[in-house]
Write a protein that binds this DNA or RNA. Structure first.
Lengths: 131, 131
DNA sequence: CGATATTGCGTGTATATACACGCTTTATGT
DNA sequence: ACATAAAGCGTGTATATACACGCAATATCG
């Protein structure tokens, strides 16, 4: 009656997301937002379309998620060279959140590696990337 | 700069969910709905609270997802012995969807195992359960 | 038996996510 | 240059998901 890979993935995803969300709570963002901020940082200023490709998210999803970060004053929207293009960049507050969150994020990474062991952690990474 | 386990999980989860959703499209339900139907089948009639525990989902989430299945006429709500309790059970249409979907689901399972190999598939299962 | 705690639900609110449309703004091709 | 295609976005709609509240029904305790 083998297990459904998709359900296993979704359950693990929910559980692990909760772990990260709780760890990041002190800085007021959840894992998805923290990750989005990091992706912005790596390429700012960046258009929403590019951000979508980097994160493997639909552009409309990115658009809405970024809007929330903007309301939280963690990012700012600027004009790209193009009149169509909207570019996103971090605010000082956003940079601080990334800085303060780094150790919190690292703590969960370490916690997971401690639970699984180094070898299994590497296997997990490889398997998830292969999917 | 190791990868974020959570993001790897979430990305894999989205990708794999898409695989299953596309495969199940002919029967008109997505993976989450198909899985919920299966969980109902295994214990019907079942209360929403119990269904939540089985699926590791919040009760309110189950409540809303079941409501959609009800609108699709795949399940029916009945009274538990208790006046508070609502029990869910499959409709004939719901049973047919499960029956027709079995081979579609199986196809994706096989496809994933073919891609990863048997050993890696077993490893993946074990790792996801350990998280 | 009456007060209190527990159980079971639904709803409000909020984020994450995708797809389909439709509107601008550029780019292209003849 | 003009018509057409392509790029970049926002919004509407829908599902998945969680948490906080509050209501009704049942169980418990003194």
């Amino acid at each position: 009656m083998s297990h459904c890979y998709c359900i296993l993935l979704r359950k693990a995803s929910r559980r692990v997301t909760t772990l990260y969300d709780e760890a990041l709570a002190p800085i007021g963002v959840n894992l998805a937002q923290f990750s989005l901020l990091r992706n912005i940082q790596r390429a700012e200023p960046i258009s929403l379309t590019d951000l979508g490709q980097r994160t493997e998210l639909d552009r409309s999803t990115v658009s809405r998620n970024v809007k929330i970060l903007e309301k939280m004053e963690l990012v700012a929207m600027t004009n790209g060279q193009d009149q169509r293009e909207t570019a996103v960049e971090l605010s000082d507050k956003g940079r601080r959140v990334l800085k303060d969150g780094a150790s919190l994020w690292d703590g969960v990474q370490t916690q997971i590696e401690a639970k699984l062991g180094n070898e299994a952690s590497a296997q997990l990474t490889a398997l998830l990337q292969a999917l």
